[in-house]
Amino acid sequence: MFDIVFWILAAVTVGAALAVVFLRDVFRAALCLVFLFFTIAGIYITLHADFLAVVQVLIYVGAISILIIVAIMLTREVWRGSPSGRLRIPALVVGLLLLGMLMFTAMSTKWHISDVPPQEPTTTAIGAGLFGDGGFLLPVEIAAVLLLAAVLGAIVLIREK
């Protein structure tokens, strides 16, 4: 059952990613990207990462996809489609080489698979890991500063001169 769910989700995810890259219509590519974000949330659920699946839907499907669709509408270049540039063949070669290298590494390495069953629910454990003793409190604060800087930077960049 679990295997079938994984294979369906993996096939749909790869198909959606290929559609994002190869569709001519930019707006349809953006809709495929939203679909891809949804299926990746499903993949997180198969990995027992319930909190991350919800965060994926909230941030990617809810916020980033809206941002991208607004950008497509503001730039009014939908009619031009998404053509490939001069680097098409080198990019294909680089992508396939990287894919081969990554697949070889993933297959040939002996991973130390743990026998411990996964935790559920993960929210408490993630909260303790982020804010508890020896956790990631300083990175959380830095992330807050980064988000503030990004918001201010976006406002400054987009302001009418």
């Binding site: 995810t13 790869v14 990613a17 994002v20 053509p83 540039g85 294909l92 992508g95 990554l102 697949m103």
Partner: peptide, 20 residues
């Protein structure tokens, strides 16, 4: 890991080859 590698390579190809 292989699913992740496939997605990463598709994204890399698109980021290098697309003009929009």
């Amino acid at each position: 890991l292989i699913l992740s590698a496939v997605l990463f390579s598709i994204g890399l190809y698109g980021a290098l080859a697309k003009r929009n």
